[in-house]
Design a protein around this nucleic acid. Structure first.
Length: 419
DNA sequence: TTTTGAGTTGTTCGA
DNA sequence: GTCGAACAACTCAAA
């Protein structure tokens, strides 16, 4: 209840209600004599449409809707290419957005006082909202995250002071705390990208530009979903619309539960399950594995990530999965298939990440850590002996994917030859 | 207006 | 062991 605590410090309190947005807010506005309702704009298409309806219903009842823009550095409709259309390639998009950052209005501080009402309206108790799952799978999340503005602020300050200088090198190594871990806080609006931009000033520290560029990806994802709202469920690259993805429930479950036999994949899926978060490098490796080595529909992977990530964000998730599957804007080319053994060796060379999430492999020497099936039998102790054999053969599954994509794209060309 | 070059995140193969 | 080529096709902006 971090928000309630913040409001209390301003001399006020949070009021919880449950019901259809317009009628619930109208009732509350009448009970308190409010003349206006303020909120921040959301850009996810369904939520933007809901809020637009809400605004017109409030206005029709004489309550002024006042909408603020704090979720993004720049509203998605505002960035256009020379032809007036949306960008579909990141770098030109980022160059354009980058030139506009200096003109951003500064982030305002939170108000010190919010005068309390004479008669406090009724609030539902928090547990009435039933926000927590009946089966408490979420115990590990509380250890990793501190929700609320204070937790977000602390993370931002610590990252700028200690993380930024090593960001360029450390951000690719999942075994080290090299990234900001701000994603859930940004998603829930506990810190705004403009506050992050302000905290990075004067942008002279090593890593500032590289980190800012990652905020640029967040903007690009929102930009794409805004201009191409169908991409949450359909590929942006229409050539892939009819691709015949495999559908194997057992293999999907093995991937979800981290039982593929590939340590970097399984470590990632365990990290996701236990903390609600996964390092970005490992998101790419696990997504490449599902969509290419297992040749399964990116939407199945996107759904799992959306259900398990604490930073689950429709725009970012869609961009990431379509990138990995090769069917999005500026996507990985179809022939780029990550090899989980090479990726593991390259980005987790000392095995810190794999050993943290897969303790049964902790005793294996670095040399074999990313391919336990190839280790000499004398090194496999009883605990590592139960390690599942690889779910697929890497070379064969790679060849299957390449043949499948090549065949599909050739058939597409026959159907619709280039103009 | 047309041409040209670059573009987040790789792997494999053969010289 | 190292290195370059091949693996395609398309967007965008600068020249």
């Amino acid at each position: 209840m971090a928000l309630d605590a913040s409001l209390e410090r301003c001399g006020n309190a949070l009021i919880l209600r449950r019901g259809p947005p317009a009628s619930t807010l109208l009732q509350l506005a009448r009970a308190t004599g409010a003349k206006a309702v303020h909120w921040n704009r959301l850009h996810e298409p369904a939520l933007a449409a809901r809020d637009e309806r809400l605004a017109s219903e409030l206005a029709a009842s004489g309550i002024e809707p006042i909408i603020h823009d704090s979720a993004l550095l720049c509203p998605p409709g505002a960035i256009r290419n020379a032809a007036g259309g949306p960008f579909r390639v990141f770098t030109p998009f980022w160059r354009r957005l980058r030139t506009r950052l200096a003109e951003l209005p500064a982030a305002l501080p939170a108000p010190r006082r919010l005068p309390a009402l004479d008669r406090a309206p009724m609030s539902l108790p928090l547990d009435k909202l039933q926000l927590l799952p009946a089966v408490r799978w979420d115990a590990g999340l509380a250890q990793r995250w501190q929700p609320g503005e204070a937790g977000a602020r602390r993370r931002l300050v610590r990252f700028v002071a200690a993380g930024l200088a090593h960001y360029v090198d450390a951000r690719e190594r999942p075994g080290e705390p090299g990234t900001s871990s701000l994603s859930p806080h940004l998603h829930f609006g506990e810190v705004s990208p403009r506050q992050v931009y302000a905290a990075l000033q004067p942008l002279s520290a090593a890593g500032s530009e590289a980190f800012l560029r990652q905020l640029g990806w967040r903007e690009f994802a929102a930009h794409l979903l805004h201009h191409f709202p169908h991409t949450a469920s359909e590929p942006l690259d229409a050539r892939y619309a009819g691709f015949d993805w495999r559908d194997d429930r057992d293999e999907l479950a093995a991937w979800q539960q981290g039982r593929t036999g590939f340590p970097i994949i399984d470590a990632g899926m365990h990290e996701l399950w236990h903390t609600g978060w996964m390092h970005n490098r490992v998101r790419m490796i696990t997504a490449s594995f599902l969509t290419r080595n297992l040749l399964m529909d990116w939407r199945a992977g996107a759904r799992w990530f959306h259900d398990t990530l604490v930073d689950a964000d429709l725009a970012n998730n869609t961009l990431g999965w379509q990138w990995a599957a090769g069917c999005g804007a500026d996507a990985a080319p179809w022939f780029r298939i990550f090899n989980p053994v090479l990726q593991g060796r390259k980005f987790d060379p000392t095995g810190r990440y794999v050993r943290r999430w897969l303790p049964e492999l902790a005793g294996l020497p670095d040399r074999w850590l990313h391919e336990p099936w190839a280790a000499p039998a004398r090194l496999l102790r009883r605990d590592t002996g139960r390690w599942p054999p690889p779910l697929v053969d890497l070379a064969a599954s790679r060849a299957r994917a390449l043949a499948g994509f090549r065949h599909h794209l050739a058939a597409q060309r026959l159907r619709s030859p280039p103009a």
